[in-house]
Design a protein around this nucleic acid. Structure first.
Lengths: 232, 232
DNA sequence: TCATAATATTGACATATATCAATCCATTTC
DNA sequence: GAAATGGATTGATATATGTCAATATTATGA
């Protein structure tokens, strides 16, 4: 593994406070791999053998039941995923597949749990991380239960706008079919939802979104930090 | 606080491994109170001043947005709630209200965080707890996104049946209006959903549920441990 | 015990969302 | 560059779910 990647991983909140010795020991057991697009990295229900770290590319976390499937989240660099399953030594609740060519680090779950027992700063960092993940899912659940699909789309666009600098135009960062699934709707409905936002000054051209009237769309979307603030 | 309650709290997973000294110190700062029904204990958005422990009664965790509201969970004894907000020193994401007369312990969040820094066994116990909470919410999200309301109800009934011993009849443990909100539907729709399960051998009489044909309802509900197992 | 209030149910209807089929459009592949 | 592929859009329609109003049922308190 190149030094720059090693340092990038070290700077993740979850690893930044642990001792050098423990970090080195964790990394010694790491596998690093480049995966092509559309590879299933993880299948729900299987034992959680590895904690994953995504260094480049993007990964879709999804789940299937009774012939249906739904995307729960898209993970981007640099972050870990499947932490809770690793810690609890429990089966994966979601499957994961690469959306594009992606570089992934695999840390054996056993090693992670062993260091977790040894290094209490690592344990505390995991607490903080899990608490944040938990709160993120609660926010998603509120989004799903309290909002219509049109409202979810409007707020999603405002979050993306903020994340990409706040300008009037920005790009969607994955295809609409996937976005529909993340937002809990069908692709057809997403198309119609985009049309439904036109009266509020939102236009779409391929993956390019333009917000012509910020006040209008915000008045409709009513974004709320307790649902839409990604941090905190 | 009576000794028996003190011991009950001590036996919660999150507290059972910490030193006596730290536990005693935590409990010294605790407030214990009996609340009547329908008291709002917590309001979303406010700073998380206390970690709550419910000793008796029941508490509804809910959230509001744009004039709508939805119940996210019902908490029963003996357990803690609002752990993630306490740990992150972040605002509550949900409100909480007593559903009936309830006995609640309030632990100042500052104290919890202080002991969290001192006692690494406590920190590790919190990791385990948060990982479980996280996985529980992910399961709920899968339930919401992958199932229709009829399927959610069917699986909910199967979970309750299991929890109450597995017999053919059992009681709902809160009113249907609340159940509807927890399941993400309206009370009217819940009524119709109960009717919709009759062809699968489910009958309802007030709060008493009877499952006349276990195989039939299971064939319809298709329960899945990755969604419906409360533990793991 | 009755009176009152709250919850639950039902029916009629409106809206939201999904499904299916056809077409359009962009991209890839040869 | 033409064909082929897969995603995106559109229209027609079906289904699921929500809303409103009326009534029934249950719980509550004087």
């Amino acid at each position: 593994m190149p030094d720059s990647e090693y340092r990038d991983i070290r700077q993740l909140n979850i690893f930044s406070q642990m001792t050098d010795e423990h970090f080195t020991s964790l990394m010694r057991g790491a596998y690093i791999q480049n995966f092509p697009a559309q590879i299933e990295l993880i299948t729900e229900g299987e034992p959680s053998d590895f904690l994953h770290i995504i260094l480049s590319g993007s990964v879709d976390l999804f789940s299937c039941w009774n012939g249906r499937d739904s995307s729960l989240a898209v993970v981007r660099p640099i972050s870990t995923f499947i932490l809770a399953a690793t810690i609890r030594d429990a089966p994966y609740l979601m499957s994961a597949r690469t959306l594009e060519k992606s570089r992934i680090v695999l840390l054996p779950s056993q090693d992670v749990r062993a260091i977790f027992e040894l290094d209490s700063d690592f344990a505390r960092a995991i607490v903080t991380e899990l608490a944040q993940c938990y709160r993120a899912v609660i926010k998603t659940q509120k989004d799903l239960k309290l909002r219509t699909s049109l409202e979810r789309l409007a707020n999603y666009l405002l979050r993306m706008q903020k994340r990409s600098g706040g300008g009037a135009t920005f790009e969607l960062d994955f295809e609409k079919r996937l976005l529909a699934s993340v937002l809990g709707m069908t692709p057809e409905n997403l198309s119609r939802a985009f049309k439904g936002l036109q009266p509020y000054g939102v236009t779409v051209n391929g993956t390019l979104i333009s917000i012509h009237n910020q006040a209008d769309i915000e008045r409709f979307a009513k974004p709320n930090p307790l649902i839409d603030d990604l941090s905190s």
